[in-house]
């Protein structure tokens, strides 16, 4: 169901800047179209697409920052959530609405593993194609390939103790 868009317009134009909308995946494209084309909002520019890993709530949230170049207002944050599990972590792409989302959605796919349905060219953009992990997820474990220095951060300190200030021998072995 599409939310009462009239209400969205009122809410956004009341305090147009610094608002955020959390929408269901199924409704994202309709809402995006509305935000872009509504004469009072005209959010015609998507400046940033990023993602947040809410590991405790078991979801990944993709955040679109929208501005209106025509009306000089914004930002409005459009947020869409998907479950963390890799197979279900998908949502409709908003690249057809804002063309500039293309690379940034690729980045969200690369680093968070969000699959965007309807994206024209969904490939990794920063990591190499053979890479299988999604490094910005909070449960990502980077390769143990250097001597960890003891710092006050509990996690780093634990790793530093574990490796004893050296590079583990496994750093030299090829991992499959």
């Amino acid at each position: 169901m599409i939310p009462p868009l009239e209400q969205v317009r009122e809410m956004l134009s009341a305090g147009a800047a610094k608002s955020s909308l959390l929408v269901e995946r199924e409704e994202a494209v309709a809402v995006a179209q509305f935000l872009k084309t509504d004469p009072q909002l005209q959010l015609d520019f998507c400046s940033c697409v990023t993602a947040v890993d809410y590991i405790k709530q078991d979801c990944i949230e993709v955040v679109y920052h929208l501005y209106s170049v025509a009306l000089k207002h914004g930002p409005v944050a459009l947020k869409v959530r998907a479950p963390r599990a890799l197979e279900q972590c998908r949502m409709p792409s908003l690249t057809p609405v804002w063309r500039g989302c293309e690379y940034q959605e690729r980045e969200a796919f690369d680093l968070y593993g969000v699959k965007f349905d309807g994206h024209p060219d969904l490939r990794r953009i920063l990591m190499w194609d053979e890479f299988v992990d999604h490094p910005m997820r909070k449960d990502y474990v980077p390769p143990m390939d250097y001597e960890w220095e003891p710092t006050p951060h509990a996690e780093t300190l634990a790793r530093a103790k574990q490796t004893g200030g050296t590079v583990p021998a496994s750093a030299l072995e090829a991992k499959k």
Binding site: F131, G165, A174
Partner: peptide
């Protein structure tokens, strides 16, 4: 080579060895 999690091999043992403690 580009591997699934890291470069393979992660270092060339002929030119580099892990620093000693």
């Amino acid at each position: 080579q580009y591997g699934a999690h890291d470069l393979e091999p992660p270092a060339n043992p002929k030119v580099w060895e892990p620093p000693k403690k």
